[in-house]
Design a protein around this nucleic acid. Structure first.
Length: 110
DNA sequence: CGCGTGACGTCTC
DNA sequence: CGAGACGCCACGC
């Protein structure tokens, strides 16, 4: 477990409810904008005791994880829906409307 | 140290 | 918008 992975877990754990982050975004926050794949790898091998909100992490297109990860995309979709994440009709989330911007955190603007 | 792998990202067609 | 190709980086062997 190197510093990068550690930061990945730390950042993911800071994603506020109702917001989502992209792999590339997390990788960039860790200092490696091109390590998006590693972020995905980190999620797959994430220690359970960290209780990471990995369902709030999606790719740039707003696509969810493959079916064999959460036990089906519908599981992840349900969790996101409960948090108020808007979904599109094609099964992807509206990434532009719920993207997490570090610093804004939980500050909501009416 | 090289090679294969992957929950990615961007570009083309 | 879907599919393919290429680059990228950490990990396991």
């Amino acid at each position: 477990m190197n510093a990068f992975m550690k930061k990945v877990y730390e950042i993911v754990s800071r994603i506020p409810k109702g917001k989502v982050a992209t792999y590339g975004q997390i990788a960039a926050l860790c200092g490696n904008p091109r390590a998006a794949r590693v972020v995905g790898w980190a999620m797959r091998h994430a220690p359970e005791h960290l209780a990471l909100p990995c369902h709030r992490v999606v790719n740039q297109s707003g696509r969810l994880a493959p079916d064999d990860v959460f036990g089906g995309q519908h599981i992840q979709r349900e969790m996101l829906l409960q948090e108020g994440i808007p979904f599109r009709e094609n099964g992807c989330i509206d990434i532009k409307k719920c993207l997490w911007i570090p610093g804004q955190s939980d500050r909501m603007v009416p």
